[in-house]
């Protein structure tokens, strides 16, 4: 029983992290029909910001990380994607890949390809014991952060005028423009929010691994991409569910696979994903609206 609860804690924590990753991708896709593979590099930029500010007071270090990823995301849209607005989906996709490689190369030039080790405040790793279950405070923090972010995002989208405009733009971008919704503001907001999610993901990933490398965003962005596909591209809630599902499945495989097969965990994981998409090609959540690309 204790083992089971331990696994539940692990699954909740990993699922929360994956949900945060996936929402960052889904936010941009919902508005622009763009799968931004350079999202991983926002995480990398966040991690190097944390590294550069290692030793400064932690509130400053964490806030600066979020601020830098938000600014980087907005700049990414302004400099790399806006000139291609209206281009076809493959052009946007290739642009995002090119940007991803360019930023990784730039990071390699500046920081070399060797991992930079550092650690975040120790309270990320405090052991917590409830009954017979032991877990680190990071598990709890990851879950709580996900709840706060998803709740905050939902409130923003439902209650604020800008949120309503974003939902309208996600449903039909052209018609939204025709009722006066400012396309630049809506798209910049989507990127800023995506940057915020990437910054949070960077903090959680560094708190877990304690290193920054130029290619550290590639793994998370793949997970985020797969999670949004499973969730049904275009649905924010779907992306969150997809992320959770992947996290839970990963932990289940970790537990049930015999030692000899454990190194092939990801192969089993993605075989499961293929199976789901064969059974439900539209993903777990079907979006009613058809998105218009801008």
């Amino acid at each position: 029983m204790t083992d089971f609860l331990q696994h539940v804690v692990d699954a909740l924590s990993l699922g929360s992290l994956y949900a945060v990753l996936a929402i960052g991708i889904a936010l941009i896709f919902g508005i622009m029909n763009l799968i931004n593979f350079a999202y991983g590099e926002l995480i990398m930029i966040g991690a190097y910001t944390l590294f550069l500010l290692d030793g400064t007071p932690w509130p400053f270090q964490l806030a600066a990380c979020l601020l830098v990823t938000i600014i980087a995301a907005v700049l990414m849209e302004r400099l790399a994607f806006r000139p291609f607005r209206g281009a076809s989906a493959p052009v946007l996709l290739v642009t995002s890949f090119a940007l991803s490689f360019a930023l990784q190369s730039l990071a390699t030039v500046i920081f070399t390809s060797r991992a930079k080790g550092f650690s975040l405040p120790s309270w990320f790793d405090d052991p917590i014991t409830i009954g017979s279950i032991d877990f680190s405070s990071l598990n709890l923090i990851t879950f709580l952060v996900m709840v706060v972010l998803v709740g905050g995002l939902a409130a923003f989208l439902q209650r604020s005028m800008l949120g309503i405009q974003m939902r309208a733009a996600a449903e039909n971008f052209r018609t939204a423009q025709l009722v006066g919704v400012r396309s630049n503001v809506v798209i910049a907001t989507a990127f800023a929010l995506s940057g915020l999610f990437a910054g949070v993901a960077a903090i959680l990933i560094v708190a877990q691994g304690g290193t920054a490398t130029p290619s550290m965003g590639s793994g998370p962005v793949l997970i985020a991409f797969v999670a949004t596909i499973i969730g049904g591209l275009g649905s924010l809630y779907g992306a969150a569910y997809g992320g959770f599902f992947l996290g839970v499945l990963t932990v289940i495989l970790q537990v049930v696979l015999p030692d000899a097969l454990a190194p092939y965990r990801d192969a089993f994981l993605y075989a499961g994903v293929v199976l789901i998409l064969l059974l439900r090609p539209q993903g777990l959540i079907v979006v009613k609206s058809r998105f218009e690309r801008v």
Binding site: I164, Q165, R167, E171, T175, V179, G180, R182
Partner: peptide, 30 residues
């Protein structure tokens, strides 16, 4: 388009194209 709308042009599009996932009130507030 949004700049022309602010300048006093509005379109009732073919097929209505209301935002079906938004409430009626939200459609009007936009």
């Amino acid at each position: 388009p949004e700049s022309l709308v602010r300048d006093g042009m509005a379109l009732v599009p073919e097929g209505r194209q209301i935002f079906s996932t938004l409430t009626v009130g939200e459609n009007l507030r936009l």
